[in-house]
Simulated scan of single mutants.
Amino acid sequence: MKLIIGNKNYSSWSLRAWLAVKQSGLSFEEITVPMFGEQWESAKQQDGFQASSGKVPILWDGETVIWDSLAILEYCADKVGRDRFWPKDDTARGMARAMVAEMHSSYGALRSECPMNIRKRFQGVHLTDACKHDIVRILGLWAEARARFGDGGPFLFGTFGAADVFYAPVVSRFISYGIGVPGFAATYMEAVWEHDWMQSWIAASDNEEWVIEQYETAPGEA
């Protein structure tokens, strides 16, 4: 398999897909194409990008191509067994699926105001009410998942799974933008941040030389 991703520092969708493939345990080749750089426009015209209309991430498995992070996760789950990604309990699995779907389709204010920037620590951030609403909603979901289904470990549903894959970039955002969170959320965020795969991704992002200026200024900063 071959996974095409964008910059590790900035591409939240790439992080989700990469974690999903790592969670599958399947071997894959990783190809990073820096977004908005000199190679970006030419790369989008190559055959490997055609199925996605020039977007990342893209997973190629032989002649099979999947170009959406949730679709990549589900494809991997089909190959290795869904229990590797989703809780076995029906009720827990239902909530996990709903949380992943909501992350996939919602939180527009948080995404636009706080783009992922793993290396950066912003100061004096001023968020809109819409962004604060997204944050409160996410913290509420985390609290419910941990309270109802988190007995088996430090992650949302105990063990690391699809929900953690999809909320990992949110953890990064909360850290980068100095979002205040209650103790249970800080503990969960630490578990995600210190996960071996996240530490590998973070180290790689630190070593990237590319800078996208539009993602280097926080809301309210001059």
Rank of each mutant, 00 (worst) to 15 (best):
F155V: 00
V56R: 01
H133S: 15
Y107E: 07
A43F: 10
T91G: 01
Y177S: 02
R173T: 09
M103I: 04
D61R: 08
L156M: 07
W142C: 10
V192Q: 04
Q199G: 06
A109M: 11
G152W: 02
G161H: 06
W142L: 09
T64Y: 00
G220C: 12
A203P: 06
E213V: 14
G25Y: 07
L127I: 12
W142A: 09
W197P: 00
R148E: 14
E209F: 10
G150K: 03
L110Q: 01
P87R: 04
L70K: 08
M99P: 03
L127Y: 09
R173L: 12
A130T: 12
G124V: 14
Y167P: 04
I118R: 06
D164P: 06
G220V: 14
V136H: 08
C114Y: 01
H133P: 00
T128E: 06
E190R: 06
R84P: 10
W18P: 03
R97S: 10
A186G: 06
S69M: 00
D89A: 15
F85W: 08
W201P: 05
C131N: 00
W201Y: 11
I179D: 02
R93F: 13
T128M: 08
M99C: 13
L59N: 08
I5V: 15
A162L: 04
E208R: 12
W60S: 08
G158E: 05
D164K: 03
G183H: 07
F36W: 10
W142K: 02
E213N: 15
V21Q: 03
D134C: 07
D61I: 07
S27R: 05
N117H: 14
M99L: 15
S12M: 04
W60C: 05
K44D: 13
I4G: 02
A77P: 05
A98F: 15
Y75E: 09
A143S: 10
V80Q: 09
M99D: 05
Y107C: 07
G54M: 13
M1Q: 05
S42T: 14
G161D: 05
E190S: 09
E29S: 13
V165L: 09
D61N: 13
D196L: 13
R16K: 14
W86V: 05
L59S: 10
M35I: 12
V125Q: 01
Q23V: 11
D68A: 01
A96S: 14
K132P: 00
Q50T: 12
I5T: 09
E221M: 13
I72E: 00
V170M: 06
S27L: 10
V181G: 01
G48A: 12
G25V: 07
G178A: 07
R119G: 08
W193V: 02
Q214I: 11
R173Q: 13
S11T: 08
F160L: 11
G37W: 01
G37T: 15
M189C: 12
F28K: 05
D90F: 08
P115L: 10
A143Y: 00
L19Q: 01
A96M: 14
W13P: 02
Q123R: 09
